[in-house]
């Protein structure tokens, strides 16, 4: 195949470039190049399209309550953006725990979603926030919930000729708690992470969302498992119940794997910690 290198500076030329079959898009390259390195020369991409100069994909803006984040926004940009820090600081906090400064300077949010690693740090947050992604192709666009976009380990709904252009979500009323358990701070992809949002009136739970990441091929949404709590008082028994339910759900999906000896108690503890912190947070006005 003829080798091709195309650097697009605007979305229209990008959509034209990727309409041709066989074109491989590169964003920050932090996932792609590590995969390419392992390939035999004949299997390496022959036609590449660079997204890194498309400024339209690097914007962050807020309209009413709707936050729109370009797919080419890097972790560093997310961490330092004033809108994010003011309205949804948990995104900045989670981004600051990704990889190392070098990875955060390059790695993009779109790249992470399309790469669809089960251990991706931001994915549980997107699910909790009920975020949507915009997928565009020449003359067409569609919007999917992240939950529906992610299909499994490195599997997504992205179709040939499509590029992810935006991620968007509503700013929730209560703050979101995020926690990550990694090997060491820098360059550690999460071994386990999770996030929780809890709204309450006095001692009665009004809304609760809980998502655990890196334990299952796609983030595990435990909102339904927590639904018994709505309009009920907070009790320690219920906390125990949700924590053990989380372990059962992981076991159902992933089975008891080699990592299970430490992972199961860790999941239980993570769920407890998230719920306790979110409970404290949920009482704040």
């Amino acid at each position: 195949m003829n080798q091709v290198w195309i650097q697009c500076e605007d979305k229209n030329s990008l959509l034209t470039a990727i309409a041709e079959p066989g074109r491989v898009m590169i964003a920050g390259g932090t996932d792609l190049l590590i995969n390419v390195r392992r390939l035999a020369p004949a299997d390496k991409p022959a036609q590449m399209v660079d997204l890194s100069l498309v400024e339209e994909l690097k914007n962050i803006h807020l309209e009413g309550n709707m936050l729109t984040i370009g797919s080419m926004v890097t972790y560093t940009q997310l961490m330092t953006d004033p809108l994010i820090r003011k309205h949804l600081p948990v995104l900045a906090e989670a981004a600051s725990q990704v990889g190392s400064p070098q990875i955060r300077n390059r790695g993009t949010l779109g790249g992470s979603l399309v790469n669809a690693s089960p251990a991706a740090d931001m994915a549980p947050l997107w699910i909790l926030l009920k975020a949507q992604v915009k997928l565009e192709s020449f003359g067409k666009e569609r919007i999917l919930l992240v939950e529906d976009f992610l299909l499994g380990h490195q599997k997504t709904m992205l179709a040939p000729g499509e590029v992810m252009t935006e991620i968007r979500c509503l700013i929730p009323k209560k703050s979101v708690i995020y926690q990550k358990i990694g090997r060491r701070n820098a360059a550690a992809i999460a071994r386990l992470n999770g996030c929780c949002l809890l709204d309450r009136q006095e001692d009665t739970v009004k809304e609760i969302r809980l998502v655990i990441g890196a334990a299952t091929p796609t983030p595990l949404d435990l909102q339904k498992d927590c639904s018994g709590w709505i309009d009920k008082p907070w009790t320690i028994e219920r906390l125990d119940e949700v924590a053990s339910q989380a372990m059962r759900r992981v076991e159902e999906i992933s089975g008891r794997r080699a990592s299970a000896t430490w992972k199961f108690p860790a999941i239980e503890n993570l769920v407890r910690r998230l719920l306790l912190d979110a409970w404290a947070e949920g009482g704040k006005q």
């Binding site: 920050g28 932090t30 590449m48 660079d50 560093t76 070098q102 990875i103």
Partner: peptide
């Protein structure tokens, strides 16, 4: 990080940057 260089002033791992970028 042994391969760290600055790209437009930002630290990056040159092993994970495509040269043509």
């Amino acid at each position: 990080g042994a391969c760290t260089v600055l790209l437009n002033g930002q630290a990056v791992n040159s092993c994970t940057v495509l040269a043509l970028q």
